[in-house]
Structures are given as structure tokens and as C-alpha cells.
């Protein structure tokens, strides 16, 4: 129980469980892919003419709008994945298995970290499947980007998962997920650089630009964007790490037994 092997076995079991469940639920896999593909193939096609992009790092030449939003859509997959795992916790289906997990004698922070890693691993599988389809469709990136993006996706996946976990401890009813959509997913996605660069936003409103600049999702997207071109963006890395630390602290607080996690419906 105390050896490192047991700790890793626990982590691996949680990740494996999540992975096996994911592959057995094909409709979940498909729906996770359809959303970003619709954005890429339909929205981007219609929108490319409306938005002019100048050459900004990491791009060294003009890029099509589809290439520009590719990293944002990778982030979107992870954002939805993080929120959906929190939804699953609020929804009764997962509450039981979460309770079971929390009765494990491993420290709670390790169990939550295992859960987060599992969610991040699933989101990474989804992102690679999405990038694969996008490549088949003709939206290709430098080959080294596909490797360099892995650590970036791990960090962004953990960060967005930690946000979801924190939210799951504060939401106690299913109906509140509509609130999460409206007040978390949509603002995070639209007030970020996923669909348009910051300088574009600044042309309309500096306030909105400033909001975009502090949005952790912006930094996750930028981290992914630079990594996809084989480059590291230190600022995005720093902000993403900070956001991960804050959201993880929030999740630990939310699941602190002294606080009383998920205010369960009483008997």
C-alpha cells in the first residue's frame, strides 16, 4: 500500500477504467469529434472570408483560417471534456463511483489527481483523433508539432479538468449544468483566442481584449498553438501552470471532507 508501485497502480487503474469506458461508449467518442469538426469544416469555411489574419507568431507565413482555429478547437475538445466529466459527477451515474473512489485509503489529493489524469488522457485521445481527421481533410501541420503538442495537451487537459472538478464540487444539481454552459463554457471559449487573435479583439474593444488576455483558456489555446508549430510559448506556459495550481487548489478545497463535498441529497 505504501510502495510507489501501489500508487502508480492506483493511478493506472483510474486512467484505464476511464479509457475502457470511453472506448465502449462509441456515441460519446463520435459526439466529441463531431462538434469540433463542424466548427472546422462548416464554420471556418464560412468565416474565413470575413476575417483577415496577418502573419503573427508562431506562423511564418499566411495561414488559412482553418489552420488558425485548429488549436482553439483542440482546446474546445478539452474544455468540453473537462466540463462533461464534472457533469457526470453531478449526475448520479458517477456520484456512486466517485464515492467509491474516495473511500480508497490513498490520500485524497492523489485520487483527485488520478481522476484528473484520466480525464486529460481521454481528452488527448479525442484531440489526436480530431487532428487525424483534420489532416485527412487536408489541414496538416508540421509533423514535429504533433509530438510537441502532447505535453501542452497534458497541461491544458489537467487545467481544464481541474476547473471541472472544482465546479463539480460546488454544483449540486443537474439543472445547473445549463449554467455551466452559459457562464463557463461559452464565455471561456468566445472570450479567448480560439477563434480570433487578440489584436483583432482589441480593434473592437480593449476591455474585451483584456478579458481575453486573462482568460486561462486563451493561454491553454496559445500553448497548444505554439506547440503545434514546435515552439514553446513561455508566457502561456506560466499562466496555464498558474491556472492549474489555482483550479487544483479549488478542487482540493471542494472535495475537502471537512467542508462536505457534493452536498448530497439527504435520505
Amino acid at each position: 500500500m505504501t510502495g510507489a508501485r501501489a500508487w502508480l497502480a492506483c493511478l493506472w487503474a483510474v486512467v484505464l477504467r476511464e479509457g475502457l469506458r470511453f472506448v465502449t461508449q462509441r456515441e460519446r467518442f463520435l459526439s466529441a469529434l463531431v462538434r469540433p469538426l463542424v466548427w472546422l469544416i462548416v464554420f471556418a469555411a464560412g468565416f474565413r472570408a470575413a476575417l483577415g489574419l496577418s502573419i503573427t507568431p508562431p506562423y511564418q507565413t499566411y495561414v488559412t483560417y482553418e489552420i488558425y482555429i485548429l488549436p482553439g478547437l483542440c482546446g474546445m475538445i478539452q474544455l468540453f471534456n473537462g466540463m462533461q466529466s464534472s457533469l457526470a459527477l453531478v449526475y448520479d451515474r458517477e456520484t456512486g463511483s466517485m464515492r467509491l473512489m474516495l473511500t480508497s485509503p490513498f490520500p485524497r489529493w492523489w485520487l483527485l489527481f488520478s481522476k484528473l489524469s484520466a480525464g486529460a488522457a481521454i481528452s488527448i485521445l479525442q484531440v489526436y483523433a480530431f487532428l487525424g481527421i483534420a489532416a485527412l481533410y487536408g489541414f496538416r501541420l508540421p509533423w514535429e508539432g504533433y509530438i510537441a503538442v502532447l505535453p501542452a495537451l497534458m497541461l491544458s487537459g489537467l487545467m481544464l479538468g481541474a476547473l471541472g472538478l472544482f465546479l463539480s464540487s460546488t454544483i449540486n444539481r443537474m439543472e445547473n449544468f445549463a449554467g455551466v454552459m452559459n457562464f463557463v463554457i461559452f464565455p471561456m471559449f468566445f472570450l479567448s483566442t480560439a477563434l480570433y487573435p487578440l489584436w483583432r479583439m482589441a480593434e473592437s474593444s480593449t476591455l474585451l481584449r483584456d478579458i481575453c488576455a486573462v482568460n486561462p483558456f486563451t493561454h491553454a489555446v496559445e500553448l497548444i498553438r505554439f506547440a503545434l508549430f514546435g515552439r514553446l510559448e513561455p508566457e502561456a506556459l506560466g499562466w496555464s501552470l498558474l491556472a492549474l495550481a489555482l483550479f487544483s487548489a479549488g478542487a482540493l478545497w471542494g472535495y475537502d471532507p471537512a467542508r462536505g463535498m457534493i452536498r448530497l441529497r439527504r435520505d
Binding site: 500500500m1 505504501t2 487503474a13 475502457l20 461508449q25 467509491l100 473512489m101 480508497s104 485509503p105
Partner: peptide, 16 residues
């Protein structure tokens, strides 16, 4: 969705 054995092994790992 998982097998009987897989469920058992998952629990075992949670308990070290």
C-alpha cells in the same frame, strides 16, 4: 460496460 474481472481489478488497485 466493463467485465466482472476488470471491475474487481479496479477496486483492488484503489486499495493498493
Amino acid at each position: 460496460d466493463l467485465t466482472v474481472r476488470r471491475n474487481l481489478l479496479y477496486y483492488a488497485a484503489l486499495h493498493g
